[in-house]
Design a protein around this nucleic acid. Structure first.
Lengths: 190, 190
DNA sequence: GATGATAAATGAACGCGTTCATTTATATTA
DNA sequence: TAATATAAATGAACGCGTTCATTTATCATC
């Protein structure tokens, strides 16, 4: 019962992800989601309160999955070493996500902002976990920096300004991520 | 032709305002607006690009009108004297608006934020005009303070936090306005 | 297995914002 | 005034998110 409900929810998310990857966020609508998942429209609302919740869950879902995998792969050694491996991992596996984020940022600032906040939450979790195990960096410094609302704005601003220069989207995204992962408190607050 | 088009647009705004006053922002919808204005649905889109533009125009419209009137009534003398008269004017005439703002802030934060930004723009204009004519306060200090994004957030935060205490809405709104009008730069930045 | 209770699934229907081919009004020219 | 061109008005139709009375499946008790 528990797993079945979770399973259906996940199936809907997978469906939504498939649509998003091929046609962007705007391609997602409840009716299509229901049809492609082989259920009725109303049933979707047994698993999600609203369309917005579907979109939020979609982002949460992606990042938690991707970051869990990353956690497995980069674990071990000092944080500074792990960070390098994180970048490599991101560079290798997050191409699709970068594209999705880029598109949503371009099309709908509010949506993009929400997504970045979600990303921030996920990144924050994994980074704090790392930093707690690393004596070379004071955990509270990172923690404080990552809880700042300004962080999401900062990321967004960076990405948007870089986007305007029409560089390669995915490449730019990864560069920004790299900057974020290496940032120290001073840079964040400025 | 010019005045006729302007007239129709204004008539639609008046209509929207009437609805808003009696039933809140959510009472406004294009179909009803068209019906009550005695025109077809599609015609509304000859005067506004979207519903959102109607709502924005509604706020702009109110503040520019009200503040123009205020400008006439409070002109003359030093700024500090004028400020007192502004408050009186606001207290006497802006009851409806306070109610509208309060409701929209309560119901939809994003909408409320947009409205506050609009209000800020209007207030900023009239305040700067005043301050330029008053040698007792350096205009650039006020100007700088009022252009800060933080200002809208500040106002919103204040109003929301005061709202939560369930005081009289209109009264609270006016108190907040009073605080805003008397604020100095230091307070805004903190 | 039969019976009742509870949870899940259903899809027609609603209200909404928006569009667009068509009609009507207004302006311009002959 | 008649003929034409341009602007404005129209409202049925579309796609969407969401709801809810009804049906179907699942579980618990005997």
């Amino acid at each position: 019962m528990r797993t079945k409900k979770e399973g259906r929810r996940q199936a809907l998310l997978d469906c939504a992800r498939r649509i998003e990857c091929s046609e962007g966020v705007d391609g997602i609508n409840i009716r299509r989601l229901a049809t492609e998942a082989g259920i009725a429209v109303g049933t979707v609302y047994n698993y999600f309160e609203s369309k917005q919740e579907v979109l939020f869950a979609l982002t949460e879902d992606f990042w938690s999955g991707a970051l869990e995998e990353m956690q497995d792969r980069v674990s071990g050694g000092r944080f500074s070493d792990q960070a390098g491996r994180m970048i490599s991992f991101l560079r290798a596996t997050m191409h699709d996500c970068a594209e999705i984020l880029m598109r949503s940022l371009h099309e709908d600032a509010a949506e993009g902002r929400a997504r970045m906040t979600s990303m921030q939450r996920a990144l924050k979790g994994i980074l704090i976990k790392r930093l707690e195990q690393d004596e070379t960096i004071r955990p509270d410094v990172w923690s404080e920096a990552f809880t700042r609302e300004a962080f999401a704005e900062f990321v967004l601003a960076n990405m948007l300004s870089l986007l305007r220069q029409k560089d390669d989207d995915a490449g730019v995204f990864l560069e920004v991520l790299q900057r974020i992962l290496y940032l120290d408190k001073r840079e964040l607050i400025d």
